[in-house]
Simulated assay, not measured.
Amino acid sequence: MRMPGWLLLVIILIVAAYWALSEFEANQPAIEQGNVVTLVFPKDRYPETGEHIKSAIERGESAECTIDREGAEHNRDLSLKGVPTKKGYDRDEWPMAMCAEGGAGADIQYVTPSDNRGAGSWISNQLEPYPNGTRVRIIVK
């Protein structure tokens, strides 16, 4: 049985609209709501990092953090202390090192470098306009 042309066109339009909406959401800058900036993290682009953020939050880590770029290096040293490197992987931290809440006790997971570094770059670019002290809520989608 052959599908009518109009039905095929409707299906194509629905798929295209869904794709366009997901791309639109993933490319939106951070949204300010009151004193908190909400950032929708694109798990489809960075699946390993997205899964790490999501699972860390489910295990009790906060979905919110406070930007503290100056403390990032120190926080990274504290969070990664005692966590061995693993060939072919980065050690991803949640909360992020650039957050005041990062550092000792952060949730660490091994993630492929391209996923981890791409995600870090994406988040950094999204939050660039915001000063230290800004509260950020991350939503993984």
Rank of each mutant, 00 (worst) to 15 (best):
W6Y: 11
V140F: 11
T49G: 14
H52F: 10
I57G: 01
I12P: 01
I53K: 04
I11G: 04
A56Y: 00
G34A: 09
N75C: 01
E93N: 02
R2C: 12
M1Q: 06
S121D: 09
P47E: 07
R135E: 03
K141T: 02
N132R: 06
L21C: 10
W19G: 08
W19F: 09
Q109V: 12
Y18P: 04
P42C: 03
M96W: 13
C65A: 07
I53P: 02
G88I: 06
V140K: 00
D77I: 09
H74W: 05
G105F: 10
P113Q: 04
S124W: 11
A72C: 02
T85H: 09
K81E: 15
P95D: 05
D68Y: 12
L8K: 12
V83D: 00
D44M: 06
V83Q: 02
L7F: 12
V83R: 00
A97C: 04
K81V: 14
A104D: 13
T38W: 05
R135P: 01
E58G: 07
K87L: 15
T49K: 03
S55F: 05
M96T: 01
E58R: 07
V10N: 11
I14Y: 15
I57K: 00
H74N: 07
E61Y: 12
A30R: 14
A97H: 13
G82E: 03
E128S: 13
V111D: 01
K141N: 13
I53M: 13
P42V: 07
S121Q: 12
V40K: 14
N125P: 05
I12M: 12
D92S: 10
H74G: 13
N35F: 08
L7C: 09
H74Q: 14
G105L: 06
G71I: 10
G120L: 00
S62Q: 15
K54F: 07
S121G: 09
A97E: 06
E128Q: 06
W19I: 15
V136I: 02
L9H: 15
G133W: 04
D77W: 12
D115E: 06
E64R: 06
T112Y: 13
G102Q: 08
V36E: 09
M1E: 09
E25H: 14
M96V: 00
D68T: 08
S79P: 02
E25F: 06
N27C: 11
D90T: 15
G105C: 10
S55G: 05
N125D: 13
V83M: 01
F41D: 02
F24T: 11
S114W: 06
E128R: 15
M96H: 11
D90V: 09
R135Q: 11
V83G: 00
L13V: 07
I53L: 11
G82Y: 03
